[in-house]
Amino acid sequence: MTVLNEEELILIRRHLHEIPELALQEKQTHQYLLKIIADFKQDYLTIKTPPQLPTALLVLVKGKNPQRTIGYRTDIDALPVTEQTGLKFASKHPGIMHACGHDIHMTVALVLLSYFSENQPQDNLLFFFQPAEESESGGKQAYEKGIFTGKFKPDEFYGLHDNPELPAGAIGCRLGTLFAGTTEVNIDLIGKGGHAAFPQNANDTVVAAASLIMQIQTVISRSIDPIQSGVITLGKVRAGTIRNVIADHTRIEGTIRGLTQQMILKIDQRLKDLCAGIGRSYNMEVKLDLNQGGYWPVENNPELTKNFIQYMKNNPDVNFIETKPKMTGEDFGFLLAKFPGTMFWLGVGDPNSQLHSATLNPDEKSIERGINAIKGFLIARMEK
């Protein structure tokens, strides 16, 4: 097979869109990726399916005179969203959709891989088709299970995320943080139930929870530098069974977003302090569970990102846009904490929808434009 052309890549993207699968269940997607890659020229390729993460896929392209191994990551999972696009190639899996554009991500990676399978790169290239980005921290699992060892260890890592707000084919990036880190927050307050008419004989967790919620609202406004940014949202509160019984248990669920890992750890500590204080003040048990998993802030490496931005700005065929950080999460942040690298946006020109929307419909013209920009960058990077 020669390098995938535009007609072929559109067909591949549409087939991937039809077969979305949830985190760690990407078996059909994995098999389809292997089928496509098997048709590429194999002279420079080493393909590996790691048994410890069986829906992951690693493809190493051997360089002519490698000075480094450049990693390129794409995510492959989908979301539990019922598609409402009305497309002829809409999801065939009920209740599951590529509502975050990972079908676009995979197509870009496949075409890049097809190009370098025909045109041997100067450096080694490692393509990582990663499961479980949307949940289950697939990037963190891959790292902790020892997938990136030996010749499969990258010296630097790159990856994209589609952006419906940017024009089709535009490249967006910034120095510093691209995506916030996220942490799940679960708080259980355990008191003593009783009759509503005799509060002195009970220990009301609803009152304590109300006090805690109000105190948590001061963490960002009074503990975080105003010129930085963070978010705490408590989206779910559950307590009690009936109006005339004092609740012995209240559960609060929420999320933290922060632009640096240091900021997230500071917010974590403030929550621990507040929960301990409420427990003492109201004489009850307060359990705090913080689960960040692999969803660390996507903090771009300064040197590599400066080089990436400079290339894109100087390329007359690239529409480069300097973007602001987003409070959405991405588990590529964990890998960028372990390997220097850069994440960037690929505009897909769908301003009437947003990521995770049931109506997301990326402009397919963005794919080839993105491929050309990224291919050019990788070639230029290998010349330095």
Results as ranks from 00 to 15, higher is better:
Val185Arg: 00
Leu4Lys: 01
Ser135Thr: 15
Gly258Val: 01
Gln120Asn: 07
Met97Pro: 03
Thr218Asp: 11
Asp155Asn: 11
Glu303Thr: 13
Val61Leu: 10
Ile371Tyr: 08
Glu136Lys: 14
Met97Leu: 10
Gly240His: 07
Leu212Asn: 01
Phe332His: 02
Gly277Gln: 09
Leu16Ala: 02
Ile246Ala: 01
Ile96Thr: 14
Asp248Ser: 10
Tyr295Leu: 12
Gly169Asp: 06
Arg381Trp: 10
Lys266Ser: 12
Ile147Ser: 08
Pro199Phe: 05
Ala276Ser: 10
Phe332Asn: 00
Glu6Gln: 15
Val3Ser: 07
Arg174Gly: 02
Phe152Thr: 13
Gln141Lys: 15
His195Cys: 05
Asn283Ala: 13
Leu126Met: 08
Val81Asp: 04
Ala380Arg: 10
Val348Glu: 01
His15Arg: 12
Leu4Arg: 00
Ile171Glu: 03
Gln122His: 14
Leu126Phe: 12
Glu165Asp: 13
Arg257Gly: 03
Tyr143Gly: 10
Asn361Gly: 02
Glu330Met: 06
Tyr158Glu: 05
Phe334His: 08
Thr359Asn: 05
Glu299Phe: 09
Ile246Thr: 02
Asp289Ile: 12
Ile264Glu: 06
Ala208Trp: 00
Met263Asp: 12
Trp345Phe: 14
Asn307Ser: 15
Arg68Glu: 15
Ala170Met: 07
Pro199Thr: 04
Met382Asn: 07
Ala337Thr: 12
Asn319Glu: 14
Leu234Ala: 08
Asn124Met: 06
Pro94Arg: 12
Asn315Thr: 12
Arg270Met: 08
Thr255Ser: 11
Ser353Asp: 09
Phe377Thr: 11
Glu144Leu: 15
Glu133Val: 01
Phe116Asp: 07
Ala109Gln: 03
Asp225Asn: 15
Lys236Ser: 15
Asp331Arg: 03
Arg369Ala: 14
Asn119Met: 11
Gly341Gln: 03
Gln67Pro: 05
Lys151Gln: 15
Ile246Ser: 00
Glu165Met: 14
Gly194Thr: 03
Ala168Ile: 06
Val286Gln: 00
Val3Cys: 11
Glu184Gly: 10
Ala23Leu: 03
Leu33Tyr: 01
Ala99Gln: 08
Leu60Asp: 07
Arg369Gly: 06
Ser223Leu: 05
Leu288Gln: 02
Met214Ser: 15
Leu378Ser: 04
Gly341Leu: 07
Thr205Lys: 00
Leu234Val: 08
Phe128Ala: 09
Lys64Trp: 04
Pro325Phe: 13
Met327Asp: 05
His356Asp: 07
Asn361Pro: 12
Leu336Asp: 03
Val318Gly: 02
His102Glu: 13
Ala210Met: 11
Gly169Arg: 08
Ala197Tyr: 10
Glu144Gly: 06
Glu144Phe: 07
Lys140Val: 02
Pro121Cys: 10
Ala208Arg: 01
Gln215Leu: 13
Gln262Ser: 13
Leu304Glu: 10
Gly172Val: 01
Ile220Gln: 06
Ile246Cys: 02
Glu6Met: 12
Pro54Arg: 03
Leu336Met: 12
Gly333Asn: 02
Ile278Gln: 02
Leu24Thr: 07
Ile246His: 00
Leu166Gly: 03
Glu253Tyr: 04
Asn315Trp: 05
Gly159Cys: 09
His249Trp: 00
Leu4Trp: 00
Val3Gly: 03
Lys35Arg: 14
Leu355Arg: 04
Val81Lys: 04
Asp162Gln: 13
